[in-house]
Nucleic acid binder design. Structure first.
Lengths: 127, 127
DNA sequence: CCTAAATATACCTTGACACGTATATGCGTT
DNA sequence: AACGCATATACGTGTCAAGGTATATTTAGG
């Protein structure tokens, strides 16, 4: 369990991280909102803490967990090398994002995206 | 092996993806550059292809693999919700947005970027 | 056709990790 | 001190994915 990528590969851990975006939460609050058994929450939080994704402070018997930025930056840094590549495929990207918009439309406020004519693709690499 | 996060959790797969950033490569080229056995390369490429990270074209006995953008965008979309947390490093973020702006400038439309202090942490938990 | 090269797949083994259940630890209250 | 709540940890189990080795498939060329 060394890399940040392995950490975020686990769906429950991603759920926890997403929960913590809004504000810090206690173990019990996470447990209830995500409807997962308490030991599961604690164990995932341990992994997340050791990987630097979260930190905790003690509040009586409760532990309040909140996000830490560094590992996210690490993921972002890795992703960066591909940004150049996918901006060359903006059109496919736009189409993809349109589908994402559609699937998350329940959130109400969606960023509207405009649709343009297709631009040229294909760097002419085929043999 | 459903999610994109599980796919990129594997170091060898990340290595392959990084290799393909520069240009498309054959299995043998990947095998030699990464010094990993050929079946390993093929199997990872299969996983990557089924997850939409790469696609291949046939060149005689060779298969040329190249990147596809959509899954990367999916990772980026997930990462987006955490961006406000690491805006401590505004510089990298700004650079990122700058490149986004630049690369999509052909589309003409504005991409809004909030600037200034986003000092909005520590929501005063119950203590 | 037959062979060699490039790539894919099949089979097996192994190890990691996520889960459930049970139990331990810590803290606050009476 | 004793109890109860919140959280952590220990242990046993099952699953699944990655690696290794062997073999199959495809294609070019003689």
């Amino acid at each position: 369990m060394e890399s940040v990528f392995e950490i975020i590969a686990e769906p429950n851990r991603r759920a926890i991280l997403s929960l913590l975006v809004s504000s810090q939460q206690s173990v019990g609050e996470i447990e209830r909102q995500l409807r997962m058994p308490q030991p599961t929450v604690s164990k995932h939080l341990r992994v997340l803490r050791e990987a630097g994704f979260v930190e905790s402070t003690v509040d009586a018997q409760r532990r309040l967990y909140r996000l830490k930025p560094e590992p996210f930056q690490e993921v972002d840094a890795w992703l960066a090398q591909f940004r150049r590549f996918w901006s060359a495929h903006v059109d496919a990207l736009e189409r993809h994002l349109d589908r994402m918009d559609e699937s998350t439309a329940t959130k109400g406020k969606t960023r509207r995206r405009r649709r343009g004519p297709n631009r040229e693709r294909d760097k002419g690499e085929t043999k």
